[in-house]
């Protein structure tokens, strides 16, 4: 299995057919790494906390979603805006090597970390060499 097959990017995933999306949807920047046991996905989602983030798996498609919830300061008026506070969404197609039951996720300081364990059958095993 080639390493790149583990998680693939789908840039068009935010174009939802059907109901129009309200507000801005951002694709978060991600780091994806892998070791013998699991795949680790780290996504920058500033403004998101534990309650406003959703990680779902459906038909081997992993979706990370979040709502930035930084309220504007009271009594001030906007002067300049370089980013809009909106929604984050990105989807990834998982390989069958991922054990979808064991996926774990956590948010810390606007960074989402998802750990995707590999199925026992595909984990790296050290083979003892008989003398």
């Amino acid at each position: 299995m080639a390493k790149t097959e583990v998680v693939k990017r789908d840039d068009n995933s935010t174009k939802v057919v059907g109901l129009p999306e309200t507000g801005t949807v951002y694709i978060p920047d991600v780091d994806i790494s892998e070791n013998g046991e699991s795949v680790r996905l780290v996504a920058d989602m500033p403004g998101v906390d534990q309650q406003s983030v959703d990680v779902t798996v459906e038909n081997n498609v992993l979706t990370i979603e979040g709502n930035a919830c930084t309220p504007p300061p009271q009594g001030y008026e906007a002067l300049g805006r370089e980013y809009a506070v909106g929604k984050y969404r990105r989807t990834f197609t998982l390989s069958h090597a991922v054990d979808t039951e064991g996926i774990k996720a956590g948010v810390r300081q606007g960074v989402l970390e998802v750990t995707l364990p590999k199925r026992e059958a595909v984990k790296t095993r050290k083979i003892a060499i008989g003398g």
């Binding site: 994806i32 920058d44 989602m45 500033p46 403004g47 930084t70 504007p72 300061p73 009594g75 001030y76 008026e77 906007a78 002067l79 300049g80 805006r81 370089e82 980013y83 506070v85 810390r108 300081q109 606007g110 960074v111």
Partner: peptide, 30 residues
């Protein structure tokens, strides 16, 4: 793997009033 490099970092939103200014900067995981 990295798609691009941001020319502006961090991104900021700025608010103002008679009392002063509020600046928000996106700095995830810092």
């Amino acid at each position: 793997g990295r798609a691009w490099r941001r020319p502006t970092y961090p991104l900021m939103n700025v608010w103002t009033s008679a009392d002063g200014m509020v600046i928000d900067a996106e700095l995830p995981g810092v």
